[in-house]
Design a protein around this nucleic acid. Structure first.
Lengths: 144, 144
DNA sequence: TCTTGACTCTATAGTAGATATAGACATTAA
DNA sequence: TTAATGTCTATATCTACTATAGAGTCAAGA
């Protein structure tokens, strides 16, 4: 199949497929006489694997490692466990951080009582770094 | 004060301060004879405002708007309320998405029972887009 | 056969929000 | 005077793509 059909089947954009090829995630496919890329079932599966990993928020570098592992005849897979575990930790940290952020933003929203600039508590609050719990949190995390 | 001192006081990197200047968030400061940037208290406050907003996850474009508003002699501030509200919605959506992702990754982790590649359930699961609830979710969100 | 339109090709630049680097100049302390 | 440190500009790099320009390919209709 040509690149357009592959894109259609997988839901991946044409430019993104070419980009993955350039990045070495997909092998360079065969070409027609007219220089069009030609893909097979294997290529489709590989692309779907990549997209699946991307939906799980993995970086291309991580996916590259996983693909290299898949391409190797044998090997131990315990590092994959570690990779996923590390990934979960990162996601957890993000959730925590965003949850704190949301709380703080909600508090911020309640600050705005006025309709004119001089009365806008949001601007006032944003100007006051000293008494912001979120910034406190942030400092804690960045220094620890 | 010179740029190094400002960086020290605010916790913002020197290169980032120069970057904010280039982006028009900070005004071009005065210079010494030797062409060094010189900052005052006002500049520090403005930078802290920017950093405060950044810690709240705002985009530079949004911060630019807020700064422009601060710089204006008067005006109505109800759009700020809307901006923060929209921002909260985005944060909420991110939290939801990441929470679903974490659940799915945790399930994925339990798949790996083996120590050899052939037995690694993680790789197997990642190859199987069809039966992945997270991918299902993802498709729902992207088509809706 | 010609032409039109859809598809594909390469190469380059742009996005956000910085960070990294190179090479030159300024300042300060010993 | 010299060495170390601070600062300057300009350019490149990062991630994961997206957008654009200009050219070539291919199939169907007039």
């Amino acid at each position: 199949m040509k690149i357009g059909e592959l894109a259609e089947k997988t839901g991946c954009r044409i430019v993104t497929i070419r980009y993955y090829e350039k990045e070495g995630l997909l092998a360079e496919p065969e070409r027609t006489e007219g220089n069009y890329r030609i893909y097979g079932k294997k290529d489709q599966e590989r692309l779907e694997f990549i997209m699946h990993c991307r939906r799980h928020g993995m970086k291309l570098s991580e996916i590259r490692e996983l693909l290299a592992f898949k391409d190797t005849p044998q090997g131990s897979c315990d590092w994959i466990d570690a990779l996923i575990e590390k990934h979960i930790d990162e996601v957890s940290a993000q959730i925590d951080s965003l949850t704190r952020l949301k709380k703080q933003l909600t508090r911020l929203l309640r600050q705005c009582s006025g309709v004119k600039k001089e009365e806008c508590g949001i601007i006032k609050s944003l100007s006051d770094v000293e008494h912001c719990p979120h910034c406190e949190d942030f400092r804690c995390r960045s220094s620890g």
